[in-house]
Design a protein around this nucleic acid. Structure first.
Lengths: 346, 346
DNA sequence: ACCAAAAATGTGCTCGAACACACTATATGA
DNA sequence: TCATATAGTGTGTTCGAGCACATTTTTGGT
């Protein structure tokens, strides 16, 4: 009995017109108690689900969703997001949803703010932002809120009242996953946690990963490990890291909290006498190359493509199908080694 | 310029009526060369995409998709499939697509065939089958072909002309993934490859995994490993495995090619003096329990939920949106340990 | 009891594709 | 030359929700 009931069916059953049924369904008022009761009686018996196709056919409003994304030309980490957004675009192009991507320079808060101003000029119905800069994000989120523009975030979690949803990963747990893998490769020795980031913009991001990583070893109470944290900034990565290597000749493992593992791997590459376990993040091309060469042992996949896809698709489905936007979507922490990498590169 | 053109727009531009445009778009004939040319001229200039919503609104045909699934009560391996199918059902209920699931006893070819007959009686437009039995599958696929019913498969790959699509995993590669993980836990020693399966129904399935597993060690040319294959059948699993353990006191690792790793784990559980690396398949509850206890080291996720979801959704989208059904969809081989398991259990 | 205002209800059109059907031209044969 | 095919066109209806607007009924005040 999964017959599809229409408003007309309900009207006939309740002995009223479809207009009245419509008013009841949408609480538009102007309905007598008698009619209300009759219609409710019918609604209680049958299981009415409005036909979403018909609803959207009439809808002439075009929903505009803007995505605020760091320029993938500057940081290729964001490249897969383009594919995810593209996928959402083709999926929703049948409906009246327009998705626009705006790039900003991930090293410049100014660029972040000015690109946001451009977006506001487009007066979108919703935005999906990669909130790299904490303070600035709070500012613009406030602005969007005042303009009644819905805000969804991904990649970074930022606490703000008016942010409707977040798509990302549990970074603390992903640090633990990295640690568990490291603990599998090594049974003891010195491990370095390296943060490589040109501008230290997403410091919280990396700290969460470090916390999780350290917590794993603390919890296990394994004696033989010692953990050291190292922060490297462009353009001193190579010199500082080489110095660190000399000072710590017994280094056994490295955990890189950003997608820049390839920078470390390329320095270690010529040092064939050293055997250092390397665990990093993200399937950017250079990382995968070193994974295939055996220099990088594991990569943790942050699934940016799907993050971006879900970020916009939840918004689109909110407008089209009136679905709720999930407050938090935590994607799985995919463990990648040389054997299964090919299935994840998009 | 992403203006949405309608048939009416085209008609106006070509100076004909929408009926004529419609005949051109659908090659229904009865169009003069003059009109054809005028319309084609317009079609070449603009980028017409029919509005899928409007198209589906009119479509009164109800598409029926039947899923042939092993009874999850008999083998809980299939339980997540129900969720995947459910997900597809809610996604497509707005459109006129009906999805029905039919269970068969995975230990009985008779049940497989008779359930198929029940499905044929429903005269569906397409079926998604888990083709556990090779010979029988070929038979019924032929039957479906003659009846013009589209066939999609998942879980097992079976070669047949008239099978439209397959969703699954590269089992050979998944064996390699398991081996790479085993090679990380162990540096040498004896490893057992165990096939546990009540009826040996999906022998090919397990052999592919074994091949990949062995190939990894062969390729690496690591001297210190010796691999043994063991086939266990209900109800002799415990006795035969215990005997095997006694005969092979130096066993260091076990790779279980089915979702029954928990059976081995529960036997090893009381033997606290033994330290054996365990790698198995699938996040069934009992496996995850042993993963959390530390007795199972890795599980490989076969993602049945998504397999089933994609199996039906590609069919549904074929009918609704006229999308092509991908010949093969290979899902990623997810590596699961105790740290990231919680993100995968559905 | 009557009228105006307000409340309640019903009707009809729209969205775009698809297709049935009605209609107009042109051609063919008697 | 007229009737009748037939090729070529255009018109109109349908799908279901949503909403504007027309219409009917009720209410309240004189």
């Amino acid at each position: 009995m999964d017959k599809k009931y229409t408003i007309k069916d309900i009207a006939k059953m309740a002995g009223v017109s479809k207009g009245t049924v419509d008013r009841v369904l949408h609480n538009r008022g102007k309905v007598s108690p008698t009619a209300l009761e009759k219609i409710n009686e019918v609604l209680n018996v049958i299981d009415y689900e409005p036909n979403l196709i018909a609803r959207n056919l009439k809808n002439t409003k075009i929903y505009r969703i803007c995505v605020l994304l760091p320029d993938p030309e500057i940081d290729p980490y964001w490249l897969p997001c383009i594919n995810g957004i593209q996928e959402a675009m083709t999926e929703f192009k049948a409906y009246s949803v327009v998705i626009e991507t705006h790039f900003f320079n991930p090293e410049s808060t100014k660029s972040f703010l000015s690109t946001n101003n451009n977006i506001i000029k487009q007066s979108p119905d919703a935005v999906l932002i990669a909130p790299l800069f904490h303070k600035e994000t709070l500012e613009i989120v406030k602005q969007y809120d005042e303009l009644g523009i819905m805000v969804n975030t991904f990649n970074n979690q930022i606490e703000a009242e008016s942010i409707k949803g977040f798509v990302g990963q549990d970074l603390y747990k992903s640090g633990r996953v990295a640690a568990s893998l490291m603990n599998l490769i090594l049974t003891e020795g010195q491990i370095a946690i390296i943060h490589i980031d040109e501008s230290l913009k997403n410091a919280v991001h990396m700290q969460e990963k470090e916390k999780g990583f350290r917590n794993y070893f603390d919890e296990k109470k394994i004696a033989g490990f010692s953990l050291t944290t190292l922060k490297l900034k462009h353009p001193n990565v190579e010199t500082k890291f080489s110095a660190f290597l000399e000072e710590n000749p017994n280094l056994k493992g490295i955990f890189i909290t950003t997608s820049k593992a390839y920078q470390i791997a390329s320095i270690l590459s010529p040092l064939t006498n050293k055997k250092i376990a390397l665990i990093g993040y993200d399937l950017v091309e250079k990382n995968v190359n070193f994974l295939n060469q055996g220099l990088v042992h594991f990569l943790i996949h942050q699934n940016q493509k799907r993050q971006a896809y879900l970020g916009v698709s939840t918004l689109a489905e909110h407008f089209i199908f009136r679905k709720d936007i999930p407050e938090t979507i935590l994607l799985p922490i995919d463990i990648i080694n040389v054997e299964n990498a090919s299935f994840y590169v998009s």
